[in-house]
Design a protein around this nucleic acid. Sequence first.
DNA 1: ACCTGAACACCGTTCAAGT
DNA 2: ACCTGAACACCGTTCAAGT
Lengths: 212, 212
Amino acid sequence: MTKGITRERIVTAALELLDDQGMDALTVRALASRLDVRAPALYWHVRNKQELLDEMATEVMRRVAGAFAAVPPGDGWRDDLTAYARVLRAEYLLHRDGARIFSGTRITDPDVVRMKEPLFERWAASGWKPADADDAVDLVTAFVVGFVIEEQERRQAAGTDPARYSIDQRDAWLGEGASLVKEAGHLQDDGDQRFERHLGMVLDGIAARLDA
Amino acid sequence: MTKGITRERIVTAALELLDDQGMDALTVRALASRLDVRAPALYWHVRNKQELLDEMATEVMRRVAGAFAAVPPGDGWRDDLTAYARVLRAEYLLHRDGARIFSGTRITDPDVVRMKEPLFERWAASGWKPADADDAVDLVTAFVVGFVIEEQERRQAAGTDPARYSIDQRDAWLGEGASLVKEAGHLQDDGDQRFERHLGMVLDGIAARLDA
DNA sequence: ACCTGAACACCGTTCAAGT
DNA sequence: ACCTGAACACCGTTCAAGT
């Protein structure tokens, strides 16, 4: 019952371990211990640690695809891409350093990639060619990845070094002058609001190029 | 002459080691050996490996700031942001996994952050408030980070596993159906062209929101 | 087929001791 | 002030041996 390690159980446990303890604590030994086996046992199911990380990233993207599929189809590409961007960000935010760890990794499951097909079909009806659809998805993905990497770094820094995150401390650290940079720092919003505003700009840019 | 380790020499050597051998080979011992000292010597100059990584990221951003400063001022924000995006991408591309490693890290040198000030001043003349300028820079940065992470992953995958990167192999891997996804894969361009096109969309989006 | 014990060649980091 | 030798508590991975 609790024994009988499988590839899936390993990946699930690895994601839990990452969330609980962080990337540095995600060791083969610790993972094995969480699954009640010794470290070498894992090598029967997984070639090496890199393959484990690829599988973890694929699982995260599978969940993104699943969450997106559960969203009712929107009224055109803009709704669809908005939903996709939100789902992707939400899934990254669920895991420590999720964006940095899981972006740009090799997806091992073709089903995850094939989930783009119905989207591409819908958008074709509104005049987008496959190349356009591909550009749009990749651009939104790149934006979300970059945004969330910065967001998670900021969050973590605020946790470990709250002093550095106070506005006064930052102003002092910046030294004399740089008044516009400081002012921008004072006004900067965080989180959802900022994300939605930036996402809106990206989508405006897509509209400008692809909706002739 | 060759002895007398300094913080800067350590960081420079660390970047060289990363480029030569990759992230996994960037160990404290290997770095020390390259500098002709024993590993513990480095701990006199740097608190720990994380601090070394922060310094490396800061050095990379210092070079970005330097390269950008060498570009003649453009004719408005669009020229400036285009130049910035290109310089940032170029610097990331110089280092293995540069975008993933150096994005979202704590900048340790205030001068690097202060370099935004003259830009913000110029853009103020064309009606941008500091908050607008901040949004624009951060959005372009997020895009470049996400784009180059994907780009470098693709490049590295093509190196280690060229089979997977042939179009036929990918089609076979995707299985039946998914014809639009496959078609997009066939047409996808790489590198500079794709970067410029996507960057153009991001800048269009910024224009749509901020140039009222 | 699936798992363990023992081992190998490493890690990052500390610290007393040297100059 | 700056560096070394030796050590500590770990790593990822391999492999013969067990069931």
